[in-house]
């Protein structure tokens, strides 16, 4: 924004020392992200061991298995869309959860950001309340709520609205609901930050220049707060695709998402190379999607900042 870049804190730490400030973070990333990711990449090109682990023998089977099924007898390959479907379902569910978070999160963020500054902290604290409880516990309680014998179905049946219990638990709907609920604060917080910084005098200016409410929203408010909305969407969508707990508990492990598929390979299936390949494929797709998105954003802004 205005004001130019500040060489902040140069009195506290000279520029040469300032670079050292990044060292702990870089070391953490290298040790806990880059190195393990390297292992995953290498493992995806090895042969599975009988009891888990890998045998040091190069193979592209893991990637072939993603798209094709190898016939046990003549070793011929036939196309198998099962895994692709899991990926497609993951993207779809994450997208639906993101859209729901937008619908609920943006008005919430707007509400909080337009409160008097002294009250905003309290509202923000309330947004983070769910995080005081472990995600697993929250997801299990959700399951209690929506299962066939749960209070929702009992209530509806008690009111005579339904005879057979509504099938909510162990459906894609339940998984979507779980994702939506788990990641909602990730939408609220960045959008709040963007709206809180928004200069509402711009609304007056646009109103003065003959814009109606809808035009003000579309041409002034949304473009200015868009970075916050984009950040919120990414923060919900990306972890949403790889989510593990919600689909496992609420989907009953029947309709797999990518996270479950990967977990399965490392646990019961003991096919580490395939699990690694699935993870690498997911990472590649997400990175490509992000790249395309960033380029498209750049174009929409005419190369501006």
């Amino acid at each position: 924004m205005a004001g130019g870049a500040l060489e902040g804190g140069s009195a506290l730490a000279p520029p040469r020392l300032q670079r050292l400030l990044l060292l702990p973070a870089l070391a953490t990333i290298l040790l806990l992200l880059v190195v393990p990711l390297g292992f995953v990449l290498v493992y995806s090109f090895l042969t599975p061991g009988t009891y888990g682990g890998v045998v040091r023998e190069f193979s592209t089977d893991a990637y072939l298995q993603f798209l094709f099924e190898r016939d046990l007898f003549d070793e011929s390959l036939t196309f198998n869309p099962a895994y692709l479907q899991i990926y497609a379902r993951s993207f779809l569910l994450a997208a639906v959860a993101t859209a729901s978070c937008l619908l609920v999160g943006v008005p919430t963020a707007y509400f909080i950001a337009t409160r008097p500054p002294s009250r905003r902290q309290a509202w923000l604290l309330l947004v983070t309340v769910p995080y005081w409880v472990n995600l697993l516990i929250r997801t299990v309680s959700m399951l209690f709520l929506i299962r066939d014998e749960g209070p929702i179905n009992a209530g509806l049946r008690g009111l005579g609205l339904i005879e057979t219990p509504l099938r909510i638990a162990y459906t894609d709907f339940a998984v979507g609901l779980g994702l939506f609920y788990s990641y909602l604060p990730f939408m609220v917080l960045p959008v709040y930050a963007a709206i809180e910084r928004f200069d509402f005098r711009l609304v007056d200016a646009a109103y003065d220049l003959y814009a109606d409410r809808w035009t003000i929203l579309r041409k002034v408010v949304l473009p200015v707060v868009r970075p916050g909305i984009v950040a919120g969407c990414l923060l919900v969508f990306i972890p949403g695709i790889g989510a593990f707990i919600a689909p496992d508990l609420l989907g009953g492990g029947k309709n797999l998402m990518v996270g479950n598929l990967i977990a399965l390979q490392f646990q019961s299936s003991r096919n580490w190379p395939f699990g690694s390949a699935a993870a690498i494929i997911l990472l590649t797709i997400v990175l490509l999607a992000l790249l395309a998105f960033v380029r498209q954003q750049g174009k929409a802004h005419g190369g501006g900042r």
Partner: peptide, 10 residues
């Protein structure tokens, strides 16, 4: 003409 101009930053 507003005191702090209120120009559209985008």
């Amino acid at each position: 003409v507003f005191q702090h101009y209120a120009l559209f930053p985008h």
